[in-house]
């Protein structure tokens, strides 16, 4: 029996009409979400393809970015390289620290201290990226000069640390800013995940005589692994797409260089923010094309992570 069927027939019909209407409204909103995401892909493609068509160089391998010249020469190679390297380095620095923070907040810290610090981490995750950029530009860039010089003097024999000119605005500095920025985001999500670990699993491990670290390895980390992957992907996505913080601390150029301390480098998002103001019509098309590449990368990372998480879930369900 339908709910509402026992009320008066006139009232029931009115109610039925509203029921259907409300249901359609909510389904329609859900459909709208799908439409928005598809529309993003379509509109970016529609603007990007003509621009790529007018490009006289190979869009994927060219390093230069001069779309408003005649003939237009631009390519994604240097931008893509900078985007991936900064995001990867940022994750390399942020992920272990973030996991350490989350472990301390959930496993080691005394409750009275861990709770307020957990709030602080949540709060820091909400700090706007432009603030990180401003801090990076004014405070961190000058501080990075001696550190970069030190690295280059003592570890210069490793190619990535070799550098002739140093004034702080390098790929390395950009990734440090990104690392500081994504750290609270990853830590906040990881903390939530570690809080979900069943007490029984942890106590069982301790009862078998594990030390606390062994308990974490036996109970906490395996249980939280898929959540940890999601957190890492969230952070990686933020680092990939971060615009303003990177735009402020990089001195932009368009070369692929393995020397991380040398000034220069650029990312897709930062390049859009820096050159959008002066870009002509083809220039805007070219920037949208670069945005499309960024879109595809984030989609790939997202779905890749989903596949890993799903496979793990199947695996743990089977055993």
């Amino acid at each position: 029996m339908q709910p509402g069927a026992i009320s008066g027939s006139k009232d029931a019909n009115k109610g039925r009409w509203l029921d259907v209407g409300f249901r359609r409204l909510s389904v329609g909103s859900a459909v709208l979400v799908l439409i928005i995401l598809v529309a993003i892909a379509l509109f970016l493609l529609q603007q990007a393809l003509p621009a790529i068509h007018k490009d006289t160089a190979n869009f994927l391998t060219e390093q230069q970015w001069r779309p408003d010249d005649t003939p237009a020469v631009f390519g994604i190679a240097a931008l893509l390289y900078g985007t991936l390297v900064t995001a990867f380095l940022a994750m390399l620095m942020a992920l272990p620290v973030a996991v350490g923070v989350a472990l301390w907040l959930t496993q080691y810290g005394p409750r009275a201290l861990a709770r307020p610090l957990g709030y602080v981490v949540d709060l820091l995750a909400a700090v706007p990226s432009v603030v990180f950029g401003l801090w990076g530009l004014i405070y961190l860039v000058p501080k990075m000069i001696p550190l970069s010089a030190w690295l280059s003097t003592y570890f210069g024999w490793i190619p990535i640390f070799k550098s002739d000119a140093i004034f702080g605005k390098s790929i390395f500095t950009a990734s440090v800013v990104l690392a500081i920025m994504v750290l609270p985001v990853i830590a906040a999500v990881t903390r939530e995940v570690f809080l979900q670990v069943p007490r029984e699993n942890q106590e069982a491990a301790l009862a078998l005589g594990s030390t606390r670290w062994e308990m974490i390895r036996l109970a906490v980390l395996p249980y939280g692994r898929s959540g940890l992957i999601s957190a890492a992907v969230l952070g990686f996505g933020r680092a990939l797409g971060e615009t303003i913080a990177v735009a402020l601390v990089l001195s932009a150029n368009y070369t692929v260089s393995a020397h991380l301390l040398t000034p220069g480098g650029n990312t897709i998002a930062a390049n859009i923010a820096n050159t959008f103001g002066e870009a002509g019509s083809l220039g805007r098309g070219a920037l949208i094309a670069s945005g499309l590449v960024l879109f595809v990368i984030t989609l790939a990372v997202n779905f890749g992570a989903r596949a890993i998480v799903a496979r793990r879930r199947e695996f743990t369900a089977a055993t």
Binding site: V33, L37, I40, L44, G241, T243
Partner: peptide
């Protein structure tokens, strides 16, 4: 799709509205 949208870089949203 909602998950994917959560991970969308914010500049893509800007580019989308710019083109649309």
């Amino acid at each position: 799709f909602v998950d994917v949208m959560t991970g969308l870089p914010s500049i893509i949203a800007g580019l989308f509205v710019l083109s649309f």
